[in-house]
């Protein structure tokens, strides 16, 4: 079948570490195939050539933290037919959303000698707080095979297959013994969405929730269990306040332990 035109792919960056878009460059074996299937129209980390929009598929990395970015995301949305957020920053506000629990002015003055030079919003927020998002890919960082799945699904006009179940299923599948049951190591696996391949437990450490909440997570039950193996309330606050702290389930749970 003759293809009329190659879809235009654009990559956009907001507040982030660049790791999620690097995942695309890290697809060493598949990168040239991806470049063959789409027209990479805007990807400043990889190329200085810019093709004008509109774009068929936009991958958005990073969270909204400045007044300028809060406007720019609307321009990106207007220029994009299908918009996918990639990673914990774009999907949940990222590590920089830790400011949302504090006074941002205080944060600025800790880091910068002349706070007046710095423009920052009070909160770091996910892209979906600002504009309509067609699909969200979780993870800090995202898994590159899941990213390829999202691009491939888009090219073939189907829904991406990114399971909403917990990391526990991935542990079972790779036959990793449960670190919490067998060793009493606190683990966020039961409330965290699969996708990483359950790496941490296979290295003898508990999951630290970098893929964010699974569908319908029972964070309260997990917190109780973790308390029984020695975690204090401040420990639990910190455990839920990392890379996905501003996602609703993790936010609610951390606030519950802060108030105790």
């Amino acid at each position: 079948m003759a293809v009329k035109h190659k879809p235009k792919l654009a990559v956009w960056k907001f507040a982030s570490c660049d790791g999620c878009q690097l995942s695309l460059l890290d697809c060493e074996e598949e990168l040239l195939a991806v470049a063959g299937a789409v027209d990479i129209a805007n990807f400043p980390e990889a190329t200085r050539a810019v093709v004008r929009g509109p774009y068929d598929l936009s991958l958005v990395e990073g969270s909204i933290t400045t007044p300028r970015d809060a406007e720019r995301i609307h321009q990106v949305r207007r220029a994009s037919k299908y918009l996918v957020t990639i990673g914990a920053c774009a999907t949940a506000g990222g590590i920089q959303a830790l400011r949302n629990f504090k006074e941002v002015k205080e944060f600025i003055s800790i880091v910068y000698a002349t706070p007046g030079y710095i423009e920052a919003l009070n909160k770091s927020t996910p892209i979906s707080d600002q504009v309509f998002v067609d699909f969200e890919l979780q993870g800090c960082p995202i898994n590159k095979y899941q990213l390829l799945e999202v691009i491939s699904a888009y090219l073939n006009r189907r829904k991406p297959n990114t399971p909403p179940y917990s990391v526990c299923l991935e542990c079972k599948r790779r036959a990793t013994v449960c670190v919490m049951v067998a060793h009493g190591t606190p683990c966020l696996g039961p409330v965290t969405q699969a996708g990483c391949g359950a790496i941490c437990p296979s290295y003898n450490r508990g999951c630290y929730g970098c893929f964010g909440p699974k569908e319908t997570p029972n964070t309260a039950a997990l917190a109780k269990r973790c308390a029984r193996i020695g975690m204090s309330d401040p420990d639990l606050v910190r455990a839920f306040r990392t890379y996905n702290s501003y996602s609703e389930p993790f936010r609610r749970e951390s606030i519950a332990h802060e108030q105790k």
Partner: peptide, 27 residues
């Protein structure tokens, strides 16, 4: 955009620094 790592590291446990500061740069 500034992300204020040095600010939110305050009050974190020393064992958390390697994972948190890794997020400064994905490269």
């Amino acid at each position: 955009p500034p992300r204020f790592f040095e600010a939110f590291l305050r009050g974190r446990h020393f064992t958390e620094a390697p994972d948190i500061t890794a997020r400064i740069c994905g490269i």
